[in-house]
Amino acid sequence: MVDAYLVVSYGGPNRPEEVVPFLRNATKGRGIPDERLEQVGEHYYMFGGKSPINELNAALVEDLRDELVRRGDHTPVALGNRNWEPYGNDVIKELYENGARNILAIATSAYSSYSSCRQYREDLARWLGEVDLPDLTIRKVKQFWNTDGFYRASVTAVRESLEAAPGSRLIFVTHSIPNAMNDSSGLEFGMTYEQQHLDLARRIADELGVEDWDMAYCSRSGSPHTPWLEPDICDHLEDLKTDGITGVVVAPIGFISDHMEVLYDLDTEAKAKAEELGLAFERAATVGTDPDFISQIADLLQNPGRTSYCEENCCALSRSATLPAL
């Protein structure tokens, strides 16, 4: 019997003085000096030093809790983060103190890769070891990119934007990852991270009768010598302008809410690039708290199916292959 549901996420700063400490957590082990983190933090300072992710996750948890209660399920629902408060290990300990012995977790990322799935599984395993409670069990629901509710919510968002900007070129967008990470991803689905996005994008386009569409990426970081999934959204906008396209609808199907990658990389950088090129720009909503999506999460928590779904080294990077993961 499940005693508590845990929504696991990335976390983000709530005020300017938290930006660098948050980035220290997010880049732990990489030896990045604070001076560089201050530069990276400019994205956050542009928005008052606050990430929208915490309030968005709080809204998701509230709506999820309401949906579960509507179904007669009063199991506690909590949020625990990797990089900022509330930290996952603290939340797990609090749930245990309140009587939970069997926790079912779901991450706020839909697709399979090291950073979007396995790293959360490693987080859960590490937190479980840190709290050192032998009678506590944690399981994780698998990724949900191919579920009906996520698909329906995505279709709704894209349809509304296409209707608002008829004749525009449809561009699906997600977070770029290194090619090597993509190649090791998605063993449980038989599709890589990239292929999962393309599969969903194709389904959405077919549903909406869109023949010409593209996949682009954002939020690349790290060494410029390391190959990452391409094209970058801004580079792709330049190519579309050359091809005679006059307007675009950008659909961020790789993100479940309007957090920093959406607000900065798309609503700020990509929009500015489109304006520079003279392209009309319409950005589709993320699934957020769409009722179909909230209902789908509730379905997954109430009927998780097989939770030991990955091979031992699924989505593992060479540096992490031996780290325990739930």
Rank of each mutant, 00 (worst) to 15 (best):
residue 177 I to T: 00
residue 212 D to C: 01
residue 81 N to L: 02
residue 232 D to L: 05
residue 323 L to N: 13
residue 18 E to G: 07
residue 44 Y to Q: 01
residue 108 T to A: 12
residue 189 F to C: 02
residue 301 L to R: 07
residue 4 A to G: 09
residue 5 Y to K: 13
residue 270 A to I: 02
residue 172 F to T: 00
residue 254 G to K: 03
residue 54 N to F: 05
residue 77 V to L: 03
residue 199 D to H: 14
residue 127 W to P: 01
residue 97 E to L: 14
residue 58 A to L: 10
residue 81 N to H: 07
residue 68 L to R: 15
residue 317 L to M: 04
residue 28 K to P: 04
residue 12 G to W: 05
residue 100 A to Y: 03
residue 296 Q to A: 13
residue 254 G to P: 11
residue 226 T to P: 03
residue 323 L to H: 08
residue 124 L to H: 07
residue 218 C to A: 14
residue 88 G to F: 00
residue 144 F to I: 13
residue 309 Y to D: 09
residue 12 G to S: 10
residue 34 D to A: 01
residue 216 A to I: 02
residue 255 F to M: 07
residue 224 P to C: 01
residue 28 K to Y: 07
residue 202 R to S: 15
residue 224 P to Y: 01
residue 264 Y to S: 02
residue 132 D to K: 11
residue 295 S to R: 15
residue 76 P to C: 13
residue 102 N to S: 03
residue 245 I to N: 05
residue 223 S to Y: 04
residue 128 L to G: 05
residue 91 V to G: 05
residue 19 V to H: 08
residue 84 W to Y: 11
residue 129 G to P: 01
residue 94 E to L: 12
residue 124 L to T: 10
residue 151 Y to C: 13
residue 217 Y to L: 06
residue 155 V to P: 07
residue 190 G to T: 07
residue 246 T to D: 15
residue 269 E to Y: 07
residue 152 R to V: 12
residue 14 N to R: 15
residue 64 L to C: 12
residue 90 D to K: 15
